[in-house]
Design a protein around this nucleic acid. Structure first.
Lengths: 158, 158
DNA sequence: TTGATATCATTTGCATACGAATGAATTTGA
DNA sequence: TCAAATTCATTCGTATGCAAATGATATCAA
């Protein structure tokens, strides 16, 4: 191409660059959704390395029950950000393992009450210190200051 | 309880507080894993509101193929952070919809090559601007400065 | 060269995650 | 009060996500 030759294609490229810096170059690896997915994957993997016999959602259910005591299944779901269909599966599996027990609400017959069993309570209390370590290890790539900033911003986003 | 009475229980509580400020009070809602899960859920929901007929992993596969061209299935998986079993399902569904096509590697007969079809290419190119909006909306709760800091720290974490 | 390893892909099994449909029970409002 | 709307829970279908086992092929090393 000659030094002074300017094709229609060149002009189009210039115009595109001027208005929309990276129209032609979408970087998946830099999109927040993609990195969020990877960060979540990493956390789940760290969790599994420390607590092999429970998943993060299962632990969340137990920890929340430990915190608030008896609740209905749906209420528990909303406390731990799970829809009705998802929380049902989680509670079913915890029940099968004897960590929670279910009963009917006396007044409102629609509701299914969930409670920790003695074993469930023992399990949560044993696991909470380990869960703290999991949080620490997940945040380990950041300094304390960075971690504090990150947590503040992440909370705004979630 | 008398004003000066100090029970063994009181002493135990004091000691616990001194060494471990919140030993008895694990706040699920403040744990990075829990908030990461919620932030991810929110992103997926924003994605679905903008792009109803593809999931984020499916779009990731298409966008990456658009970026790098023909690749083996496993290689594609590692580029978009999916294990072999997961990427297989994603590619199968994209293939069933005519967005990608598969062929055998001539030399290495183990490999399954993946390519965008013409339709797949058209779809990605149409969706990339929408994907940019999704990123924007996901980050909308943050100011530009906050978003920049957040992305830097999130990348360190993932 | 060949036996041990490693890689690529598939399959199975299990666990979230969520939309949509359904049914039972409760609450609301005209 | 009673019909409409809402809430609680279940079920079904679809889609990740990953561990583990398997089989085919390729590579490495003795």
């Amino acid at each position: 191409m000659g030094r002074t030759a300017v094709s229609a294609e060149d002009i189009k490229l210039k115009l595109v660059e001027a208005e929309e810096p990276d129209e032609n170059d979408y970087r998946l690896q830099e999109q927040v959704g993609f990195i969020l997915r990877k960060a979540h994957q990493r956390h789940v993997s760290i969790f599994a390395a420390h607590i092999a016999d429970l998943t993060p959602p299962q632990f969340a259910a137990l920890a929340k029950l430990h915190d608030v005591g008896e609740t209905s299944q749906n209420q528990l779901g909303s406390l731990i950000a799970m829809d009705a269909a998802t929380v049902k599966g989680v509670i079913d599996r915890l029940k099968a393992r004897g960590l929670v027990e279910l009963s009917k609400h006396e007044v409102d017959k629609r509701r299914l009450l969930v409670n920790l069993t003695a074993e469930g309570r023992k399990a949560v209390e044993r696991l909470i210190p380990i869960a703290r370590e999991i949080t620490e290890e997940t945040l380990a790539p950041l300094s304390s200051k960075e971690a504090a900033i990150f947590m503040r911003l992440l909370a705004k986003l979630a």
